[in-house]
Amino acid sequence: MVTANQALKVVGLFIAYLLKSIIDLFLTKPLWASLKVLEDTDLRVTGGIHETYKAKALWEKTGAVIMVVRRPGCLLCREEAIELSSLKPQLEDLWIPLLAVVKENIGQELDAFKTFFTGEVYVDQKRALYGPVERYMFMSALLRIGVWRSLWRAYRKGYTGNIVKGEGLVLGGVFVIGPEDQGILLEHREKEFGDEVNLLAVLRSARKIQDCLATVK
C-alpha cells in the first residue's frame, strides 16, 4: 500500500520534472562549435605576461583538455577546476596539457581560481569558446533542483566563492581537442550551473589523442 510520504515524494518529483521541462524551453539550445572558429580565437596569457596566441597553437601538436570557465569566483566552477585538476597526472603521462579559459581577467579573482586549477589559464575576451551561440541562465537557476543539489554538494565539500564579482550568466563547458586535424573529441556544454563534465569521458577522449599520435609515429 502506498503511504502518504511515498505519494508526496512522487508528486514532488513530478512537479520538479515539470518545472525543469518548462524552464528548459527558455534555455538556448547549444550549437556544436566550429573547429575553425576555435582555432582562430585570440587567447591572452594571464599572470602579468602581455602575450596573445591563436588558440590553435595550444593544441595543434599535443591536443588539449580545456575548461571553459563560467566564472572564476563561483564555488561550482572552483569545484570542477579541482576535479579536472585531479586528472593532471594522467594527462601528463599522455603529454596532453590541461588548460582553462575565462571571459575576463579580474585580478584577485583569477589569482584565487588558480589555486584550484593546476593548468595554464587564458582570457578569451571575444568569448568564442563560449559560443557559437552564447547560452545564458538567469533567475530560472533558482527553480532548478539540479542547481541546488550542485550547490549543496559543493558546500558540503567545503568550497566557497562569491556571487558578485565577474560575469557569471553565460554558461561554460569543457573541450577535448585533438592535434592537427583530429578535431573536437569531446564537447561538454553546461546545461545549468554545476553541470559538470564526466571525468571518465574526458580521459577516454584524451586517450584517443594518444592513440592518434602513436599511429602517426
Rank of each mutant, 00 (worst) to 15 (best):
L43H: 00
L43R: 00
L31E: 11
G63L: 09
V133P: 08
K36S: 12
G183S: 02
N162D: 11
F138E: 12
A16Q: 03
V45W: 03
L25F: 04
V101D: 00
L76I: 10
D42K: 13
A64M: 02
N105M: 10
I184F: 01
A112P: 12
G178Y: 02
T46R: 05
A128P: 10
C212L: 14
G173Q: 06
N162I: 05
Y155S: 08
L186D: 04
V2K: 14
S85A: 14
F113H: 08
I82W: 05
T160V: 06
P179C: 02
L76M: 09
V101M: 06
A57W: 01
V133K: 13
Q125L: 03
R71H: 03
V121N: 02
T3W: 11
D93G: 13
F26Y: 12
E104F: 03
V10P: 01
T118N: 12
G183I: 08
L35H: 01
F193A: 11
Q182F: 02
E167I: 07
V164N: 08
L27C: 09
T62I: 03
L171R: 10
W95T: 15
M1I: 11
I23P: 02
V102T: 04
Q108R: 15
V121L: 04
V216L: 14
L169V: 10
A4G: 12
P132R: 06
E104R: 09
L213M: 13
S86A: 13
L129K: 00
Q210P: 10
A33K: 06
E134S: 14
R153Q: 09
L25H: 05
K126T: 02
N105D: 07
W95D: 14
L151D: 13
G168R: 01
V45Y: 07
T28Q: 11
L38V: 05
C77F: 03
L98F: 06
M139R: 11
G131S: 10
K88D: 13
L185M: 08
Q6E: 14
I96Y: 10
E134P: 15
R127H: 05
R149H: 07
K61E: 01
I163L: 12
